[in-house]
């Protein structure tokens, strides 16, 4: 029920609110109307009102539909998606009202009211408030995807303190996207090309994760070049599990922070979950997570025995 309200009813109401100012004030709008304002606050771009109306409505329609498709495939509340849905809706509603009111009875688009920082801040504030309402409405930070505790495998090594496990997880689709974006960026001029290359490199960074488990800690490194690389101490790790990672349950791919867990998701499927006594759990999608978890449990178990003695 709440899902239906969050995903369908509220977006539909927001869509109506986007269209509403045009319907109410259609006859008082100049054609073309001002749709863009310069740094000084004066109008410097114009389009027929019908184009702005259709553009805003179509943009929100497309965003709602794609968010709904993603969320429909996933059980549980998804605060970040609902916050995004509400926030973008609020932003577009504000833009729609502001544009129409500035053009009201203007005569021509040059005559539209100026738009300054005050109005822009107002629009952004409205979007933020709408996003926050979405976040709270979907359960906010209290919402937690139901987690069935995974298996906690053990491996039999004579001396877990001197064993090392290493493995990696590769996201094939992310790799393809990253390579594609970098290539497009290399053949594009100027700042746009540079931006695309950077975006592609970030995608490639999240296409490969390598994990090394040893007595002194768990080393995680990103991308083929192994940067960034960091080490997680096993002192705070109480056990390790194999988890079947569904990216949608984490809100997508990449670095994912959810209540009580931080994850590097490069692909779906089995991953290593480090259950920590202080701080959030850590999840890495690597192949052969069972051996990795087994070694972590062996090391942690051996330490505990030593502590008891």
């Amino acid at each position: 029920m709440k899902r239906t309200v969050n995903l369908y009813v509220v977006p539909a109401v927001l869509l109506v609110l986007i269209v509403l100012p045009f319907l109410l004030l259609w006859s008082s709008l100049p054609d073309p109307m001002a749709i863009h304002w310069g740094v000084g606050g004066n109008p410097n771009g114009y389009a027929p009102p019908v184009l702005l109306l259709l553009g805003l409505a179509a943009a929100y329609g497309a965003i709602s539909l794609s968010v709904n498709r993603v969320v429909a495939a996933t059980p549980g509340e998804m605060p970040s998606f609902v916050a995004g849905l509400f926030g973008v809706g609020g932003l577009l509603v504000a833009v729609s009202w502001m544009s129409v009111l500035a053009n009201r009875d203007a005569g021509s688009w040059q005559g539209a009211d100026p738009v300054g920082w005050f109005e822009i801040l107002g629009v952004l504030a409205l979007a933020l408030v709408a996003g926050a309402i979405g976040w709270v409405s979907a359960g906010g930070s209290a919402a937690r995807t139901d987690r069935v505790p995974g298996e906690t495998p053990m491996i039999d090594v004579a001396d877990p303190a001197s064993a090392v496990w290493s493995g990696r997880g590769l996201g094939k689709v992310t790799t393809a996207i990253g390579v594609g974006v970098v290539l497009i960026g290399l053949f594009t001029w100027g700042a746009v090309g540079l931006g695309l290359v950077l975006i592609g490199i970030v995608a490639l960074m999240f296409a490969l994760v390598r994990v090394t488990v040893a007595q002194s800690g768990v080393v995680v490194s990103m991308g083929w070049w192994g940067f960034p690389r960091w080490k997680v101490s096993l002192d705070s790790v109480s056990s390790a599990e194999v988890e079947m990672v569904r990216p949608m349950a984490y809100g997508g791919w990449g670095y994912r922070a959810r209540p009580g867990v931080r994850a590097i998701v490069v692909r779906s499927g089995a991953g290593l979950r480090l259950v920590r006594s202080d701080g959030a759990d850590l999840v890495y999608t690597v192949d052969d997570a069972e051996t990795a978890a087994g070694l972590v449990n062996a090391i942690v178990g051996a330490r505990r025995e030593k502590g008891v003695e």
Binding site: V164, S166, R168, T212, V213, S216, G217, S221, R229
Partner: peptide, 29 residues
């Protein structure tokens, strides 16, 4: 020796990738 033993025991087979040197170094201090 550890790599040799793993290869000899069949735990590691042709085409497998050893840990990246930097990662292994950091995990072994």
């Amino acid at each position: 020796a550890a790599v040799r033993r793993a290869v000899a025991d069949g735990d590691v087979v042709a085409g497998d990738r050893l840990p990246a040197a930097r990662d292994l170094a950091k995990s072994l201090d």
